[in-house]
Computed example of a mutant assay.
Amino acid sequence: MSENSEIPDGTAPGTTESATAPAGATATAPGPQPEPIRFFGTSWVAHDGNYGLRRAGVAVGSLAATAASCFLLRFAYQGLEIADVGSFVGILVVLTFAICSAIAFRKTWEGFGSRPADPGREDNLRGLKTIGFIGSLLAYFFRTFTEAPGEKLRRAEYEAAQVRYAKRRSARTGNPAARKTAKAKKARRK
Rank of each mutant, 00 (worst) to 15 (best):
L72E: 12
A102F: 09
R168H: 02
N50W: 02
G57Y: 00
K185R: 10
G135C: 00
A104W: 11
W109V: 13
F40C: 13
Q78A: 11
G52C: 01
L137D: 02
I103S: 06
K185H: 12
G90T: 02
E17T: 10
G79F: 04
P36K: 05
A59K: 02
G150H: 05
G31E: 08
R121E: 08
F133N: 00
R168M: 05
A83L: 07
F112H: 11
R164Y: 06
F40P: 10
G10M: 13
T20H: 06
A29E: 12
R38H: 04
F105R: 07
I131W: 05
Q162H: 08
N124V: 12
T16P: 03
G14H: 00
R155G: 00
L72F: 12
G174N: 09
T144P: 00
A65P: 10
T66W: 04
A156D: 13
I91M: 13
L138P: 00
A19W: 07
G52F: 02
L125V: 09
A27L: 07
A156I: 04
R154I: 01
I7F: 03
P8L: 06
G52H: 03
I134Y: 02
L80V: 10
V163D: 05
A56D: 01
R164S: 15
A68M: 10
F145N: 00
G57M: 01
G52L: 10
R126A: 13
K167N: 09
A177H: 08
L153N: 09
E159K: 04
G24F: 00
T96F: 07
E151D: 01
R115Y: 07
E110L: 14
I91W: 08
R164C: 13
E151Y: 04
V45A: 08
A27K: 10
A182L: 14
I37C: 02
V58H: 01
A156G: 08
S136Y: 05
A187P: 05
T42C: 06
F40T: 12
R164M: 07
P34L: 11
Y140S: 02
A177P: 11
V60F: 04
A104F: 05
S62T: 12
F97G: 09
C70G: 13
P30D: 14
E6F: 02
L92P: 01
A178E: 14
P36W: 07
A27N: 04
K167M: 05
A178D: 12
F39S: 14
L73K: 09
R126Q: 15
Y140V: 02
I131G: 03
T16G: 06
A83F: 02
N175Q: 13
P13C: 00
K167S: 06
L92C: 15
T144C: 15
E81T: 08
Q78Y: 03
